[in-house]
Design a protein around this nucleic acid. Structure first.
Length: 430
RNA sequence: GCCCUGGUAGUAUAGUCAGGUCCAGUAUGCCCGGCUGUCACCCGGGCGAUCCCGGGUUCAAAUCCCGGCCAGGGCGCCA
Protein backbone atom coordinates (compact mmCIF):
# COMPACT_ATOMS: atom_id res chain seq x y z
CA UNK A 1 0.00 0.00 0.00
CA UNK A 2 0.96 3.61 -0.43
CA UNK A 3 1.97 5.78 2.49
CA UNK A 4 -1.21 7.29 3.80
CA UNK A 5 -2.00 10.14 6.15
CA UNK A 6 -5.27 10.35 8.06
CA UNK A 7 -7.35 13.43 7.38
CA UNK A 8 -7.23 14.75 10.94
CA UNK A 9 -3.48 14.36 10.98
CA UNK A 10 -3.13 16.17 7.66
CA UNK A 11 -5.03 19.14 9.08
CA UNK A 12 -2.25 19.51 11.62
CA UNK A 13 0.48 19.32 8.98
CA UNK A 14 -0.46 22.29 6.81
CA UNK A 15 1.56 22.79 3.66
CA UNK A 16 3.08 19.32 3.78
CA UNK A 17 2.67 17.03 0.79
CA UNK A 18 0.64 14.01 1.91
CA UNK A 19 -1.62 11.34 0.46
CA UNK A 20 -5.16 11.01 1.77
CA UNK A 21 -7.50 8.15 1.03
CA UNK A 22 -11.15 7.66 1.85
CA UNK A 23 -14.76 7.91 0.70
CA UNK A 24 -16.50 10.67 -1.19
CA UNK A 25 -19.25 11.93 1.10
CA UNK A 26 -20.61 14.33 -1.50
CA UNK A 27 -19.45 16.56 -4.31
CA UNK A 28 -20.40 20.07 -5.26
CA UNK A 29 -19.79 20.60 -8.93
CA UNK A 30 -19.59 24.25 -10.02
CA UNK A 31 -18.52 25.82 -13.31
CA UNK A 32 -14.94 26.38 -12.24
CA UNK A 33 -14.56 24.26 -9.14
CA UNK A 34 -15.25 20.74 -8.08
CA UNK A 35 -15.52 20.43 -4.33
CA UNK A 36 -15.11 16.93 -2.93
CA UNK A 37 -15.98 16.20 0.68
CA UNK A 38 -13.55 13.43 1.49
CA UNK A 39 -14.01 11.26 4.57
CA UNK A 40 -11.95 8.67 6.37
CA UNK A 41 -12.19 7.10 9.81
CA UNK A 42 -10.57 10.16 11.38
CA UNK A 43 -12.65 12.94 9.85
CA UNK A 44 -13.59 15.01 6.81
CA UNK A 45 -11.91 17.58 4.59
CA UNK A 46 -12.87 19.49 1.47
CA UNK A 47 -10.74 18.75 -1.57
CA UNK A 48 -10.89 21.77 -3.86
CA UNK A 49 -10.29 20.94 -7.51
CA UNK A 50 -9.74 23.87 -9.84
CA UNK A 51 -11.32 22.80 -13.10
CA UNK A 52 -9.12 23.02 -16.15
CA UNK A 53 -5.96 22.98 -14.08
CA UNK A 54 -3.79 20.68 -16.21
CA UNK A 55 -1.29 20.19 -13.41
CA UNK A 56 -3.70 18.09 -11.34
CA UNK A 57 -3.13 14.52 -12.38
CA UNK A 58 -6.31 12.55 -12.99
CA UNK A 59 -8.61 15.57 -12.70
CA UNK A 60 -9.42 16.16 -16.36
CA UNK A 61 -11.76 13.22 -16.86
CA UNK A 62 -12.83 12.89 -13.24
CA UNK A 63 -16.40 11.89 -12.46
CA UNK A 64 -17.18 11.12 -8.86
CA UNK A 65 -20.20 9.73 -7.04
CA UNK A 66 -21.01 9.31 -3.39
CA UNK A 67 -19.02 6.63 -1.60
CA UNK A 68 -16.45 6.28 -4.37
CA UNK A 69 -13.13 5.37 -2.78
CA UNK A 70 -10.38 7.74 -3.82
CA UNK A 71 -6.78 8.60 -3.12
CA UNK A 72 -5.66 12.21 -3.21
CA UNK A 73 -2.14 13.57 -2.98
CA UNK A 74 -1.65 17.23 -2.19
CA UNK A 75 -1.48 19.75 0.62
CA UNK A 76 -3.85 20.89 3.34
CA UNK A 77 -3.89 24.69 3.52
CA UNK A 78 -5.59 27.32 5.58
CA UNK A 79 -8.45 29.01 3.81
CA UNK A 80 -10.65 31.92 4.68
CA UNK A 81 -13.32 30.79 2.22
CA UNK A 82 -14.08 27.33 3.55
CA UNK A 83 -16.20 27.18 6.67
CA UNK A 84 -13.91 24.51 8.11
CA UNK A 85 -10.94 26.88 7.77
CA UNK A 86 -8.84 24.22 6.05
CA UNK A 87 -9.07 22.81 2.53
CA UNK A 88 -7.01 20.34 0.57
CA UNK A 89 -5.33 21.35 -2.68
CA UNK A 90 -4.72 18.25 -4.78
CA UNK A 91 -1.86 17.42 -7.09
CA UNK A 92 -3.27 14.10 -8.16
CA UNK A 93 -6.52 12.20 -7.72
CA UNK A 94 -7.03 8.50 -8.29
CA UNK A 95 -10.23 6.51 -8.07
CA UNK A 96 -9.53 3.25 -6.26
CA UNK A 97 -13.07 1.88 -6.54
CA UNK A 98 -16.30 3.31 -7.88
CA UNK A 99 -19.51 2.92 -5.89
CA UNK A 100 -22.57 1.70 -7.76
CA UNK A 101 -25.22 4.42 -8.09
CA UNK A 102 -27.72 5.11 -6.76
CA UNK A 103 -26.69 3.91 -3.31
CA UNK A 104 -29.06 1.56 -1.44
CA UNK A 105 -29.94 4.38 0.94
CA UNK A 106 -28.93 7.89 1.85
CA UNK A 107 -26.02 7.82 4.27
CA UNK A 108 -25.54 11.53 4.87
CA UNK A 109 -28.65 12.98 3.29
CA UNK A 110 -31.81 14.27 4.86
CA UNK A 111 -34.03 11.35 3.96
CA UNK A 112 -32.73 8.61 6.21
CA UNK A 113 -33.67 4.95 6.13
CA UNK A 114 -35.48 2.49 8.31
CA UNK A 115 -33.55 0.10 10.51
CA UNK A 116 -34.59 -2.85 8.37
CA UNK A 117 -33.23 -1.21 5.21
CA UNK A 118 -30.04 -0.25 6.99
CA UNK A 119 -29.55 -3.78 8.28
CA UNK A 120 -29.95 -5.16 4.76
CA UNK A 121 -26.99 -3.00 3.76
CA UNK A 122 -25.21 -3.11 7.10
CA UNK A 123 -21.77 -2.97 5.45
CA UNK A 124 -22.61 0.54 4.30
CA UNK A 125 -24.60 1.55 7.36
CA UNK A 126 -21.38 1.15 9.36
CA UNK A 127 -20.25 4.38 7.70
CA UNK A 128 -23.07 6.42 9.23
CA UNK A 129 -21.83 8.55 12.15
CA UNK A 130 -24.55 7.34 14.51
CA UNK A 131 -23.85 3.68 13.78
CA UNK A 132 -20.14 4.27 14.21
CA UNK A 133 -20.77 5.92 17.56
CA UNK A 134 -22.79 2.94 18.81
CA UNK A 135 -20.11 0.39 17.98
CA UNK A 136 -17.23 2.52 19.19
CA UNK A 137 -19.02 2.75 22.52
CA UNK A 138 -19.66 -0.98 22.50
CA UNK A 139 -15.97 -1.48 21.92
CA UNK A 140 -15.12 0.74 24.89
CA UNK A 141 -17.53 -1.22 27.10
CA UNK A 142 -16.03 -4.53 26.05
CA UNK A 143 -12.44 -3.38 26.38
CA UNK A 144 -13.15 -1.83 29.78
CA UNK A 145 -14.78 -5.04 30.97
CA UNK A 146 -11.77 -7.11 29.94
CA UNK A 147 -9.31 -4.66 31.44
CA UNK A 148 -11.08 -4.34 34.78
CA UNK A 149 -11.77 -8.02 35.25
CA UNK A 150 -8.32 -9.07 34.10
CA UNK A 151 -6.70 -6.66 36.53
CA UNK A 152 -8.78 -8.21 39.29
CA UNK A 153 -7.10 -11.50 38.54
CA UNK A 154 -9.74 -13.35 36.54
CA UNK A 155 -8.63 -15.76 33.84
CA UNK A 156 -10.27 -15.59 30.43
CA UNK A 157 -11.45 -18.93 29.14
CA UNK A 158 -13.34 -20.21 26.11
CA UNK A 159 -16.39 -22.36 26.67
CA UNK A 160 -17.68 -24.68 23.93
CA UNK A 161 -20.55 -23.40 21.82
CA UNK A 162 -21.73 -26.84 20.74
CA UNK A 163 -23.06 -28.81 23.65
CA UNK A 164 -24.74 -32.14 24.25
CA UNK A 165 -27.70 -31.12 26.37
CA UNK A 166 -29.55 -28.20 27.86
CA UNK A 167 -27.50 -26.26 30.38
CA UNK A 168 -30.31 -24.48 32.18
CA UNK A 169 -33.65 -25.72 31.08
CA UNK A 170 -36.11 -22.99 30.23
CA UNK A 171 -35.25 -21.59 26.85
CA UNK A 172 -35.56 -23.61 23.65
CA UNK A 173 -32.27 -24.63 22.08
CA UNK A 174 -31.18 -24.77 18.46
CA UNK A 175 -30.61 -28.38 17.46
CA UNK A 176 -27.98 -29.47 15.02
CA UNK A 177 -26.75 -32.79 13.70
CA UNK A 178 -23.39 -33.80 15.13
CA UNK A 179 -22.18 -36.79 13.14
CA UNK A 180 -24.28 -39.65 14.45
CA UNK A 181 -25.42 -37.67 17.45
CA UNK A 182 -27.63 -34.70 18.13
CA UNK A 183 -26.14 -31.54 19.55
CA UNK A 184 -27.26 -28.03 20.54
CA UNK A 185 -26.00 -24.50 20.39
CA UNK A 186 -25.18 -23.35 23.91
CA UNK A 187 -27.80 -21.21 25.61
CA UNK A 188 -25.29 -20.26 28.27
CA UNK A 189 -21.68 -20.99 29.24
CA UNK A 190 -23.05 -21.67 32.72
CA UNK A 191 -21.85 -25.19 33.43
CA UNK A 192 -18.45 -24.58 31.87
CA UNK A 193 -17.91 -21.41 33.86
CA UNK A 194 -18.55 -23.40 37.01
CA UNK A 195 -16.27 -26.24 36.03
CA UNK A 196 -13.51 -23.71 35.31
CA UNK A 197 -14.07 -21.70 38.50
CA UNK A 198 -13.92 -24.63 40.89
CA UNK A 199 -10.30 -25.10 39.81
CA UNK A 200 -9.05 -21.72 38.56
CA UNK A 201 -11.07 -19.84 41.22
CA UNK A 202 -11.67 -16.67 39.17
CA UNK A 203 -12.60 -16.88 35.52
CA UNK A 204 -14.43 -14.87 32.88
CA UNK A 205 -15.52 -15.25 29.29
CA UNK A 206 -17.05 -13.23 26.49
CA UNK A 207 -19.04 -15.61 24.38
CA UNK A 208 -22.04 -15.83 22.06
CA UNK A 209 -25.12 -17.72 23.18
CA UNK A 210 -28.25 -18.82 21.33
CA UNK A 211 -31.91 -19.06 22.25
CA UNK A 212 -34.38 -20.67 19.89
CA UNK A 213 -37.38 -18.75 21.21
CA UNK A 214 -39.64 -17.17 18.62
CA UNK A 215 -39.62 -13.83 20.32
CA UNK A 216 -40.33 -10.71 18.41
CA UNK A 217 -39.48 -7.80 20.65
CA UNK A 218 -37.13 -4.81 20.61
CA UNK A 219 -35.06 -6.30 23.44
CA UNK A 220 -34.49 -9.91 22.34
CA UNK A 221 -32.22 -11.56 19.80
CA UNK A 222 -31.66 -15.23 19.06
CA UNK A 223 -27.91 -14.77 19.16
CA UNK A 224 -26.33 -12.49 21.72
CA UNK A 225 -22.98 -12.01 23.39
CA UNK A 226 -22.48 -12.30 27.12
CA UNK A 227 -19.80 -11.10 29.45
CA UNK A 228 -19.62 -13.67 32.24
CA UNK A 229 -17.63 -14.12 35.38
CA UNK A 230 -17.48 -16.96 37.87
CA UNK A 231 -15.69 -17.01 41.18
CA UNK A 232 -14.88 -19.66 43.79
CA UNK A 233 -15.17 -19.02 47.53
CA UNK A 234 -17.80 -16.45 46.77
CA UNK A 235 -21.48 -15.99 47.50
CA UNK A 236 -24.06 -13.78 45.81
CA UNK A 237 -23.05 -10.70 47.82
CA UNK A 238 -19.38 -11.16 46.84
CA UNK A 239 -20.10 -11.13 43.13
CA UNK A 240 -22.75 -8.41 43.34
CA UNK A 241 -20.01 -6.15 44.61
CA UNK A 242 -17.81 -7.14 41.68
CA UNK A 243 -20.72 -6.52 39.31
CA UNK A 244 -21.51 -3.03 40.50
CA UNK A 245 -17.85 -2.08 40.44
CA UNK A 246 -17.49 -3.46 36.93
CA UNK A 247 -20.55 -1.56 35.75
CA UNK A 248 -19.28 1.70 37.18
CA UNK A 249 -15.86 1.13 35.66
CA UNK A 250 -17.35 0.48 32.22
CA UNK A 251 -19.62 3.51 32.40
CA UNK A 252 -16.78 5.74 33.49
CA UNK A 253 -14.67 4.43 30.63
CA UNK A 254 -17.35 5.41 28.13
CA UNK A 255 -17.79 8.81 29.73
CA UNK A 256 -14.08 9.48 29.53
CA UNK A 257 -13.16 7.83 26.24
CA UNK A 258 -16.22 8.52 24.09
CA UNK A 259 -17.37 12.11 24.63
CA UNK A 260 -17.77 12.75 20.90
CA UNK A 261 -19.67 9.54 20.27
CA UNK A 262 -21.98 10.27 23.17
CA UNK A 263 -22.60 13.71 21.75
CA UNK A 264 -23.44 12.19 18.37
CA UNK A 265 -26.12 10.18 20.13
CA UNK A 266 -27.16 13.05 22.39
CA UNK A 267 -26.40 10.90 25.41
CA UNK A 268 -25.07 11.75 28.80
CA UNK A 269 -23.72 9.11 31.10
CA UNK A 270 -24.67 9.26 34.72
CA UNK A 271 -22.52 6.91 36.72
CA UNK A 272 -24.45 5.53 39.68
CA UNK A 273 -23.06 5.88 43.18
CA UNK A 274 -21.96 2.76 45.00
CA UNK A 275 -23.08 0.71 46.69
CA UNK A 276 -26.21 0.26 44.62
CA UNK A 277 -29.49 -0.10 46.41
CA UNK A 278 -30.25 -3.75 47.15
CA UNK A 279 -33.93 -4.54 47.14
CA UNK A 280 -35.15 -7.99 48.02
CA UNK A 281 -37.69 -9.54 45.70
CA UNK A 282 -40.26 -9.47 48.52
CA UNK A 283 -39.62 -5.78 49.17
CA UNK A 284 -40.00 -5.04 45.47
CA UNK A 285 -43.34 -6.85 45.35
CA UNK A 286 -44.49 -5.03 48.45
CA UNK A 287 -43.52 -1.65 46.99
CA UNK A 288 -45.37 -2.39 43.79
CA UNK A 289 -48.45 -3.59 45.64
CA UNK A 290 -48.38 -0.46 47.75
CA UNK A 291 -48.25 1.56 44.52
CA UNK A 292 -51.41 -0.18 43.37
CA UNK A 293 -49.94 -2.86 41.10
CA UNK A 294 -51.83 -6.13 40.96
CA UNK A 295 -49.16 -8.66 41.77
CA UNK A 296 -48.84 -11.99 43.52
CA UNK A 297 -45.68 -13.05 45.36
CA UNK A 298 -43.78 -15.57 43.22
CA UNK A 299 -44.52 -13.99 39.84
CA UNK A 300 -41.91 -12.33 37.69
CA UNK A 301 -42.15 -8.59 37.08
CA UNK A 302 -43.64 -7.46 33.80
CA UNK A 303 -41.83 -4.84 31.76
CA UNK A 304 -44.24 -2.21 33.01
CA UNK A 305 -43.69 -3.25 36.61
CA UNK A 306 -39.93 -3.08 36.15
CA UNK A 307 -40.35 0.49 34.88
CA UNK A 308 -42.63 1.33 37.77
CA UNK A 309 -40.16 -0.11 40.20
CA UNK A 310 -37.43 2.07 38.77
CA UNK A 311 -39.59 5.13 39.37
CA UNK A 312 -40.33 4.06 42.94
CA UNK A 313 -36.69 3.32 43.75
CA UNK A 314 -35.65 6.55 42.04
CA UNK A 315 -32.25 5.26 40.90
CA UNK A 316 -31.02 4.40 37.40
CA UNK A 317 -29.48 1.19 38.71
CA UNK A 318 -30.38 -1.20 41.53
CA UNK A 319 -30.34 -4.85 42.51
CA UNK A 320 -33.26 -7.16 43.13
CA UNK A 321 -32.08 -10.11 45.25
CA UNK A 322 -33.41 -13.16 47.10
CA UNK A 323 -35.74 -14.38 44.36
CA UNK A 324 -38.34 -17.10 44.71
CA UNK A 325 -36.73 -20.35 43.60
CA UNK A 326 -39.45 -20.94 40.99
CA UNK A 327 -38.24 -17.88 39.09
CA UNK A 328 -34.62 -18.98 38.93
CA UNK A 329 -32.72 -21.92 37.42
CA UNK A 330 -31.97 -25.13 39.28
CA UNK A 331 -28.33 -24.25 39.94
CA UNK A 332 -29.26 -21.30 42.19
CA UNK A 333 -28.40 -21.95 45.83
CA UNK A 334 -31.48 -22.14 48.08
CA UNK A 335 -31.61 -20.01 51.19
CA UNK A 336 -30.55 -21.86 54.33
CA UNK A 337 -33.56 -20.82 56.43
CA UNK A 338 -36.14 -20.50 53.62
CA UNK A 339 -35.90 -23.01 50.75
CA UNK A 340 -38.51 -21.04 48.76
CA UNK A 341 -35.86 -18.38 48.19
CA UNK A 342 -32.58 -18.58 46.32
CA UNK A 343 -29.35 -16.60 46.39
CA UNK A 344 -30.07 -14.94 43.04
CA UNK A 345 -30.02 -11.34 41.90
CA UNK A 346 -30.86 -9.13 38.93
CA UNK A 347 -29.29 -5.83 38.09
CA UNK A 348 -31.79 -3.39 36.63
CA UNK A 349 -30.25 -0.48 34.75
CA UNK A 350 -32.27 2.20 32.95
CA UNK A 351 -35.34 0.06 33.35
CA UNK A 352 -34.03 -3.09 31.67
CA UNK A 353 -32.60 -6.28 33.07
CA UNK A 354 -28.95 -5.93 32.36
CA UNK A 355 -27.41 -8.71 34.31
CA UNK A 356 -28.34 -11.60 36.52
CA UNK A 357 -26.39 -13.91 38.73
CA UNK A 358 -26.54 -16.42 41.54
CA UNK A 359 -24.61 -18.24 44.11
CA UNK A 360 -24.48 -21.76 42.67
CA UNK A 361 -25.22 -25.09 44.26
CA UNK A 362 -21.91 -26.83 44.87
CA UNK A 363 -23.23 -29.74 46.95
CA UNK A 364 -24.16 -32.70 44.72
CA UNK A 365 -27.06 -33.81 46.89
CA UNK A 366 -28.71 -30.38 46.94
CA UNK A 367 -28.15 -30.16 43.19
CA UNK A 368 -30.05 -33.42 42.64
CA UNK A 369 -32.89 -32.13 44.80
CA UNK A 370 -33.04 -28.86 42.89
CA UNK A 371 -33.03 -30.64 39.55
CA UNK A 372 -35.96 -32.82 40.59
CA UNK A 373 -37.78 -29.79 41.98
CA UNK A 374 -37.43 -28.15 38.57
CA UNK A 375 -38.78 -31.19 36.77
CA UNK A 376 -35.40 -32.24 35.41
CA UNK A 377 -33.80 -35.64 35.60
CA UNK A 378 -30.51 -35.72 37.57
CA UNK A 379 -29.38 -38.63 35.39
CA UNK A 380 -29.14 -36.22 32.46
CA UNK A 381 -26.69 -34.09 34.42
CA UNK A 382 -24.32 -36.78 35.60
CA UNK A 383 -21.14 -35.08 34.35
CA UNK A 384 -22.20 -31.78 35.77
CA UNK A 385 -23.06 -33.16 39.19
CA UNK A 386 -19.93 -35.24 39.25
CA UNK A 387 -17.77 -32.17 38.80
CA UNK A 388 -18.83 -31.07 42.28
CA UNK A 389 -17.94 -34.37 43.88
CA UNK A 390 -14.18 -33.91 44.02
CA UNK A 391 -13.61 -30.81 46.05
CA UNK A 392 -15.77 -28.05 44.66
CA UNK A 393 -15.70 -24.83 46.68
CA UNK A 394 -18.77 -22.63 47.04
CA UNK A 395 -18.95 -20.30 44.07
CA UNK A 396 -21.02 -17.62 42.39
CA UNK A 397 -21.14 -15.61 39.18
CA UNK A 398 -23.10 -13.43 36.81
CA UNK A 399 -23.42 -12.42 33.21
CA UNK A 400 -24.06 -9.16 31.39
CA UNK A 401 -25.68 -9.07 27.97
CA UNK A 402 -23.39 -7.02 25.75
CA UNK A 403 -26.09 -5.81 23.35
CA UNK A 404 -28.43 -4.87 26.15
CA UNK A 405 -25.72 -2.98 27.96
CA UNK A 406 -24.89 -1.13 24.75
CA UNK A 407 -28.57 -0.37 24.34
CA UNK A 408 -28.97 1.28 27.69
CA UNK A 409 -25.72 3.20 27.39
CA UNK A 410 -26.42 4.50 23.88
CA UNK A 411 -30.14 5.01 24.46
CA UNK A 412 -31.19 2.81 21.55
CA UNK A 413 -34.69 1.43 21.72
CA UNK A 414 -34.10 -1.56 19.47
CA UNK A 415 -31.45 -4.12 20.36
CA UNK A 416 -30.77 -4.68 16.64
CA UNK A 417 -29.13 -1.23 16.58
CA UNK A 418 -26.55 -2.58 19.01
CA UNK A 419 -25.61 -5.77 17.21
CA UNK A 420 -23.59 -5.56 14.02
CA UNK A 421 -25.26 -8.54 12.42
CA UNK A 422 -28.39 -9.33 14.42
CA UNK A 423 -30.05 -12.71 14.29
CA UNK A 424 -33.74 -12.60 15.01
CA UNK A 425 -36.87 -14.57 14.20
CA UNK A 426 -36.56 -13.77 10.50
CA UNK A 427 -33.18 -12.29 9.88
CA UNK A 428 -30.35 -14.61 8.95
CA UNK A 429 -28.51 -12.30 6.52
CA UNK A 430 -26.23 -10.49 6.19
C1' G B 1 -47.85 -17.94 19.47
C1' C B 2 -51.60 -13.68 20.10
C1' C B 3 -53.31 -8.44 19.30
C1' C B 4 -52.75 -3.63 16.76
C1' U B 5 -50.61 -0.78 12.67
C1' G B 6 -48.25 -0.70 8.13
C1' G B 7 -45.99 -2.57 3.03
C1' U B 8 -46.47 2.85 -3.14
C1' A B 9 -39.56 4.66 -7.67
C1' G B 10 -32.68 3.45 -4.86
C1' U B 11 -34.44 5.89 -0.11
C1' A B 12 -38.35 8.38 2.71
C1' U B 13 -43.28 9.45 2.09
C1' A B 14 -48.65 11.59 -0.04
C1' G B 15 -52.87 9.28 -1.90
C1' U B 16 -56.33 4.23 0.75
C1' C B 17 -61.36 5.93 5.46
C1' A B 18 -66.03 7.75 1.38
C1' G B 19 -63.24 2.52 -5.64
C1' G B 20 -63.22 5.91 -11.48
C1' U B 21 -60.34 12.85 -11.57
C1' C B 22 -53.73 8.26 -10.14
C1' C B 23 -50.70 4.20 -16.65
C1' A B 24 -49.83 7.44 -9.20
C1' G B 25 -47.93 13.34 -6.32
C1' U B 26 -43.67 15.27 -3.26
C1' A B 27 -38.71 15.21 -1.23
C1' U B 28 -34.16 13.12 -1.73
C1' G B 29 -31.14 10.10 -4.98
C1' C B 30 -29.42 9.05 -9.97
C1' C B 31 -28.39 10.95 -15.29
C1' C B 32 -27.73 15.42 -18.54
C1' G B 33 -27.05 20.70 -19.06
C1' G B 34 -26.15 25.63 -16.92
C1' C B 35 -23.65 28.39 -13.00
C1' U B 36 -16.34 32.64 -11.03
C1' G B 37 -15.61 29.21 -4.09
C1' U B 38 -19.43 26.01 -2.97
C1' C B 39 -20.40 24.36 2.04
C1' A B 40 -27.40 19.96 2.90
C1' C B 41 -24.64 24.98 -3.33
C1' C B 42 -28.20 26.80 -6.61
C1' C B 43 -31.14 26.73 -11.37
C1' G B 44 -33.31 23.95 -15.65
C1' G B 45 -34.45 19.23 -17.91
C1' G B 46 -34.78 14.01 -17.57
C1' C B 47 -34.78 8.80 -15.27
C1' G B 48 -36.91 5.76 -11.90
C1' A B 49 -43.10 2.31 -9.00
C1' U B 50 -45.83 -4.64 -12.89
C1' C B 51 -48.72 0.53 -5.90
C1' C B 52 -45.37 -6.72 -1.31
C1' C B 53 -47.31 -11.71 -3.37
C1' G B 54 -51.71 -14.77 -4.56
C1' G B 55 -56.91 -15.03 -4.89
C1' G B 56 -61.85 -12.63 -4.69
C1' U B 57 -65.83 -8.59 -5.20
C1' U B 58 -66.94 -4.91 -9.11
C1' C B 59 -68.39 -2.21 -15.45
C1' A B 60 -63.89 -0.36 -12.76
C1' A B 61 -59.12 -1.86 -7.28
C1' A B 62 -52.94 1.30 -4.92
C1' U B 63 -57.89 2.00 -2.59
C1' C B 64 -62.88 -3.00 -0.52
C1' C B 65 -62.65 -8.56 1.18
C1' C B 66 -59.74 -13.30 2.18
C1' G B 67 -54.99 -15.87 2.57
C1' G B 68 -49.63 -15.60 2.66
C1' C B 69 -44.94 -13.19 3.38
C1' C B 70 -42.33 -9.08 5.52
C1' A B 71 -41.77 -4.68 8.80
C1' G B 72 -42.90 -1.66 13.30
C1' G B 73 -45.29 -1.55 18.13
C1' G B 74 -47.66 -4.14 22.35
C1' C B 75 -48.07 -8.85 24.97
C1' G B 76 -46.59 -13.79 25.78
C1' C B 77 -42.60 -17.03 25.76
C1' C B 78 -37.57 -16.06 27.17
C1' A B 79 -32.77 -13.86 31.30
Amino acid sequence: MFERTYIEEAKGRLGERVTLAGWVTRTRDLRKFLFIILRDSSGEIQVTVKKGDESIEGASDLTLGREDVIKVTGRAVESGVVHAGVEFIPESIEVLNKAKQPLPFDLFGTVGAELDTRLNYRFMDFRAPKTQAIFRIQNVLLTAFRRFITEKGYLEFQPPCIIASASEGGAELFRLPYFEKEAFLAQSPQLYKQMAAISFEKVFTVTPIWRAEKFNTPTHLNEIRQMDIEQAFADDETVMKVLEETLVYMLEAVREESPEDLEHLSREITVPELPLRRLTYSEAVEQLQKAGEEMVWGEDFTKAQEQRLMEIVGREAFFIKDWPSVQKPFYAMPHEENPDLVHAFDLVYNGIELSSGTQRVHIPEILRQQLRKNGLNPEDFTHYIESFSYGAPPHAGWSIGLERLTMSVTGMENIRECCMFPRDRDRLVP
